[in-house]
Simulated scan of single mutants.
Amino acid sequence: MSEIRVVEGRVKADGSKANDKQDGFSVEKTATGTYKVSFDDPFTVEPTVVANIYGVSTSGTSWNTVDNAIVEEADRSDVRIVTGNYYGDKSDRPFTFIAISSRVPRGR
């Protein structure tokens, strides 16, 4: 059985890390509701990545269940996460993510 590698984090709507003690990745807000998360050390095998919005809105209420975060594209080095509003438009949202993969390609 191969070892598992995990990189996880929380990102604020402005594209900064929610906790400066998080390591293993950097993040850049590239456009409204679009974020590039780069892994400090690329994965050996393309990871599975999951993302969700978190927290409360700027008005202090919970996000609507249709506000969302999606993984638009992922590879061994980075992932593009897009967040959106109730209407499906790209909109800045805080999000969490987890990227997980085996350290060794299967079959080796």
Rank of each mutant, 00 (worst) to 15 (best):
V6C: 07
G33H: 04
A51I: 08
S59H: 02
V71N: 05
T32E: 06
F39P: 02
F39Y: 15
P94A: 13
P105F: 02
R106C: 04
R103V: 10
S38I: 02
S38Y: 02
F43C: 03
V49C: 09
R103I: 08
T30S: 12
K36Q: 08
I98E: 06
P42R: 11
V27F: 06
S101E: 03
F97P: 00
T96C: 09
F95Q: 00
E3Y: 12
D40E: 14
V7R: 11
K12N: 15
V66S: 14
R76K: 15
A74F: 00
G15P: 01
R80G: 03
S26D: 08
T48N: 10
T34N: 06
V27W: 07
K21Q: 14
A13C: 03
V27N: 07
D89A: 14
V6N: 03
I53G: 01
V56H: 04
A74K: 12
S26I: 04
V6W: 01
W63E: 06
T34I: 11
D92C: 02
E28F: 05
E72M: 07
N52Y: 09
T83V: 12
G55Y: 01
R108G: 07
T96V: 11
N64H: 15
V104K: 13
A74D: 00
A31E: 13
R93S: 10
K36V: 12
E46M: 13
I70C: 02
T30H: 06
Q22V: 06
V71W: 03
G55A: 09
K21V: 09
A69W: 11
Y87S: 11
S57E: 10
A18G: 11
T96W: 02
N68Y: 13
I98V: 15
A74M: 05
P47L: 08
V71Y: 03
A69N: 10
K17V: 07
R10V: 00
S2W: 10
G84D: 04
D20L: 12
R106W: 10
V7K: 10
S101H: 04
S26N: 13
G9D: 05
A99Y: 10
V66T: 14
P42F: 10
K21L: 14
T30A: 04
V66M: 08
Y87C: 01
A31S: 15
E8L: 10
I81G: 07
R108V: 13
V56L: 14
T96M: 08
D78S: 15
S91K: 10
V50T: 12
V82L: 06
